[in-house]
Amino acid sequence: MSTSAQRPYRVLVSKIGLDGHDRGSRIVAAYLRDAGMEVIYTAPWQEVQALVRMASDEDVDLIGISSLATDHLLLPKLLEALRAADLGDLPVVVGGIVPDEDEQALIEAGVRRVFHPGSSRDEIVSTVAALAAEARIQRKTESF
């Protein structure tokens, strides 16, 4: 019996850096929960290394970061740390206020998707589900 296909996606929803506003991350967490996912929800102000540790220990399929100030500037460091911990295949998405000029740099650094204010529930849920599924398949077929 293969159950991994039915196993709910596990998503880490968090905030890094200095800002604490969590209305957005709470709403997104609820969206994902209502879509049948398991959301590991953290306090704001996480350190990059702590996030890597949590993502690994919790065996998540995706990391979602909410950024309303300028904390998204730390994301390239997060991606680098994930790669260093051999979690480079873990998709990272960000939602919040990200200026266009920064968005390009984030995508180049490896962020898979930037959600801006006004992104719809469907868009968020379906993108997260697709990226999480992709990450799972990749892990499954990964050889060593």
Partner: peptide, 21 residues
């Protein structure tokens, strides 16, 4: 700056974030 809001001095945070808000 947000670093001040968090109760930190400039030498306690990632310089990338300093003075951005």
């Amino acid at each position: 700056c947000n670093s001040v809001y968090r109760g930190l001095d400039a030498d306690q945070v990632d310089p990338l974030l300093l003075g951005t808000c």
